[in-house]
């Protein structure tokens, strides 16, 4: 026998289920309970940067829209700074910038969206810059453990991004890139399975 290591194990994930809105977006479930619902202010009105809207649909393996999905976004500000103590520049983060938000779908169409500011280049590992991106976490009925992915922008310099370059099949990198559809709007569809399956990440 050897000494025990005594680490704890991470709690197992369980699906967020079809009624995730009750807990995380009760207004969408059909009632008001909290003074302030969380997740609708990624970038407050004082935060500087280019205001953008991101929209998309999550598709299942049959090509049908997933209408009960909830997506969380986490991103840096326009200068690439995260509002978190682990970012060495966090004291300079934009005023009123939370960096985190939630998006839920229209129950009829499956379209989700959120308003934010466009993130800047973020310092990556070993000083290698990462192209502007928004980190996404996707939960829904039928998803046993939240799916992580990243959304990049098709009007940015993505070629040298160290994470995109880790995707072995080059054409699959396109699944991580949002398309500009208007002056300040982007489209980012997510495919859980099948043709064009989005690259998901074990972070």
């Amino acid at each position: 026998m050897v000494q025990p290591l005594n680490y704890l194990k991470e709690s197992a994930s369980q699906t967020a289920g079809p009624y995730v809105h009750i807990g995380l977006a009760p207004g969408a479930a059909g009632f008001n309970i909290f003074e302030r619902e969380l997740g609708w202010d990624i970038a407050g009105p004082d935060a500087r940067g280019t205001r953008i809207r991101v929209e998309g649909v999550v598709y299942d393996g049959t090509g049908a829209p997933v209408k009960d999905v909830l997506i969380e976004a986490w991103q840096a500000d326009a200068n690439g700074i995260y509002p978190h103590v682990e970012d060495p520049r966090h004291a300079d983060c934009a005023t009123g910038f939370r960096g985190w938000g939630r998006a839920i779908t229209d129950f009829d169409t499956g379209v989700w969206g959120f308003d934010t500011i466009k993130p800047g280049v973020v310092q990556g590992r070993n000083g290698r810059p990462m192209a502007p991106h928004i980190n996404l976490w996707i939960v829904a009925r039928g998803i046993n453990i939240g799916l992580n992915t990243r959304m990049y922008f098709d009007d940015e310099e993505n070629a040298a991004d160290p994470v995109l370059n880790l995707v072995e099949q080059v054409h699959r990198r396109d699944t991580l890139i949002a398309h500009k559809t208007g002056p300040n709007t982007y489209r980012f569809d997510i495919r859980l399975q099948g043709d064009g399956e989005t690259v998901f990440m074990d972070i």
């Binding site: 299942d60 859980l192 399975q193 990440m201 074990d202």
Partner: peptide
């Protein structure tokens, strides 16, 4: 079944 990715995660 229809909501599970088939490819390995990165």
């Amino acid at each position: 079944v229809a909501r599970s990715p088939r490819f390995a995660m990165l």
